[in-house]
Simulated scan of single mutants.
Amino acid sequence: MLLEDRLVALIEPVVNNAGFELVRVRITGGQKKTLQVMAERPDRTMSAEDCAKLSRALSPVLDEADPIEGNYNLEVSSPGIDRPLVRLKDFDDWQGWPAKLELNRLVEGRKRFKGVVAGVDEGKVAFDIEGEEDTALFPLEWIASAQLILTEELIRQTMKADKETRQTTGEDEMETSQ
């Protein structure tokens, strides 16, 4: 089992118990490694306080399991506005939004595609490629990277969702009273 798979098995239950969904786990760096844990609330938002809360929940579990050789930094973050799409769920959730993806192999002479996320069809990523009539279907394991394209509408929708979450959770009141 790959290290990142072992880390997901260790981290995901903690993330879920804290009320979040795990988006991605990645290790970067050479001598000085960084363990990046990307998560979000079920409503696809994630505040700085959420990141701190999740970091506090993960630290003791990681300290005890000691899954990474040597020293490393833990970085907990949200997927961001132009978020990566890494799970089938992401492609389903973000159907209708412009995105770019890169495959780990050539398909019809190319690896990079730009277009609109068309959801999931029979366990494959459906993607409306710019300039093509038919919807392409890609197995998730063929996708090396994919992310939403930053647009004014995406920014507007993300800010609206964040504002609604802050009002629901009372975070706006907490920030203004500090």
Rank of each mutant, 00 (worst) to 15 (best):
I81L: 15
S78I: 01
K53G: 01
V61I: 11
A52E: 14
L58C: 04
K53V: 02
P67I: 07
Y72N: 09
V86Y: 03
D63K: 15
V61M: 04
L54A: 03
I68C: 13
R83A: 10
V61A: 12
P60S: 09
S77L: 05
E69D: 15
A65K: 13
D90M: 04
S77T: 15
A57F: 03
W94I: 00
K53Y: 01
R56Y: 02
N71I: 05
I68H: 09
S77N: 12
N73A: 15
P84R: 15
F91T: 05
N73W: 13
D82S: 06
S78D: 01
A52R: 08
P67Y: 08
K89S: 13
L85G: 02
K53M: 06
F91G: 03
R83T: 01
F91W: 11
E64C: 02
G70Y: 06
D90S: 05
S55F: 01
K89V: 12
A57M: 04
V86Q: 05
L62D: 11
I81A: 01
P60D: 08
W94R: 07
W94L: 15
A57H: 06
F91R: 03
L62V: 11
S77K: 10
V76K: 04
A52F: 00
L74Q: 12
L62C: 11
P84N: 10
D82Y: 03
F91E: 02
P67R: 08
R87V: 01
K53F: 02
L54W: 03
E75L: 11
I68L: 07
Y72T: 12
P84G: 05
P84L: 13
N73S: 14
L88T: 06
A65E: 15
A57W: 04
D82G: 03
G80N: 01
I68N: 11
Y72D: 10
D82E: 12
K53L: 11
D63R: 15
S78F: 03
K53W: 00
A52V: 12
P84Y: 07
G70M: 09
P84Q: 11
D90H: 13
R56Q: 11
L54N: 04
D82W: 04
A57E: 14
A57K: 10
V76T: 11
S78W: 01
N73D: 15
W94V: 00
D82N: 08
V76W: 06
Y72W: 14
P67M: 09
V61L: 06
D93F: 09
V76C: 10
V76D: 03
L88R: 05
W94C: 06
F91A: 05
N71T: 13
L54R: 01
P79I: 07
E75S: 13
R56A: 12
P84C: 01
N71F: 14
G70A: 06
P84T: 15
A52M: 05
L85R: 04
V61K: 11
P60I: 08
D82M: 06
G80R: 07
L62P: 10
